[in-house]
């Protein structure tokens, strides 16, 4: 072997680097595709109006927080708080109902389980437009119209199928042995769930909760229909910016995006974990 001449094929090398270059190109396109709107939104939200309207300036050089402040004073601040409350209500309700359901799907075998699962997913096929008006009528009767609890409940109905399916796969990812061991060593089924299964499922459940939060945070249609005064942030912005100048629109987008971005950065590792479990 040592005496033989080792042949390196030029073709192999070219092929190797061609693949690398194509891959790098695709990654760059994907990143630009996602990042550019973010960057533009942030730049223009903070840009000086004079520069924004100057056709010769692409990237503004002087910045101001004026528009963002203006928006906050006009009600975006209260709307943000409303949005957080609605999202928390959504998480609370959807986990209160979804977690036991997910547990049942993960742990028990029962008649009609698969059809039931399909049925839950099928709920999402209902167009919100169709049920929005009847829902509003119902909400008036129940006194839920224009309340944060009302919006939270509507969001819960949206998030619930997702929460049930995700929690069921997260709980299925926690070996049933751990729970059974806890039952053998002195706990009831409920005790075993809280002392053993829940702590083990927590990272995944946190991820699911964050996802639910973002779902509620971004939802605009139902929130806009069901509320008039107590608007969530997207509904508020939708209402306000329709007739506003461009940089106010960008400021609105900026206020919408920043909290979600912060959330995703914190949640990043949990999200991977959630899908990691789900894919098992």
């Amino acid at each position: 072997m040592s005496n033989e001449k080792i042949l390196t094929s030029r073709g192999d090398i070219i092929r190797y680097y061609t693949y690398r270059i194509i891959l790098a190109g695709l990654v760059i396109i994907a990143v630009v595709w996602i990042a550019l709107p973010f960057i533009m939104t942030i730049l223009y939200a903070l840009a000086d109006p004079a520069q924004y309207y100057d056709p010769h300036v692409i990237i503004p050089t002087s910045y101001t927080l004026k528009h963002v402040n203006q928006l906050l004073i006009l009600g975006a601040y209260q709307a943000t708080i409303n949005s957080v409350i609605v999202a928390l209500i959504t998480i609370g309700f959807s986990f209160l109902i979804g977690l036991p359901a997910g547990y049942a799907f993960a742990r028990y075998r029962f008649r009609g389980k698969d059809s039931l699962k399909l049925f839950i997913v099928a709920l999402r096929m209902f167009p919100m437009m169709v049920i929005a008006v009847p829902l509003l009528v119902l909400y008036f009767k129940l006194g839920l119209a224009d309340t944060l609890v009302g919006i939270g409940l509507a969001h819960t109905s949206m998030a619930l199928p997702f929460v049930i399916l995700i929690t069921s796969s997260i709980i299925a990812g926690v070996r049933v042995d751990y729970e059974e061991a806890a039952m053998v060593f002195g706990l009831s089924r409920i005790g075993a769930f809280f002392r053993v299964t829940l702590p083990l499922a927590l990272p995944g459940l946190t991820a699911a909760a964050i996802f639910t939060f973002i779902m509620s945070w971004n939802e605009v249609f139902i929130a806009a229909v069901l509320s008039f005064q107590n608007r969530t942030l997207p509904a508020f912005i939708l209402n306000l910016i329709a007739g506003s100048t461009d940089f106010i629109k960008f400021a609105g987008a900026f206020i919408m995006v920043i909290p979600a971005l912060i959330f995703v950065f914190i949640a990043g590792k949990y999200l991977v974990r959630m899908w990691g479990i789900t894919l098992k």
């Binding site: 070996r175 042995d177 751990y178 059974e180 061991a181 806890a182 053993v196 702590p199 083990l200």
Partner: peptide, 9 residues
């Protein structure tokens, strides 16, 4: 247990 079921947390 066959898998030992030693609680990982």
């Amino acid at each position: 247990f066959q898998s030992y079921a030693v609680w990982p947390h």
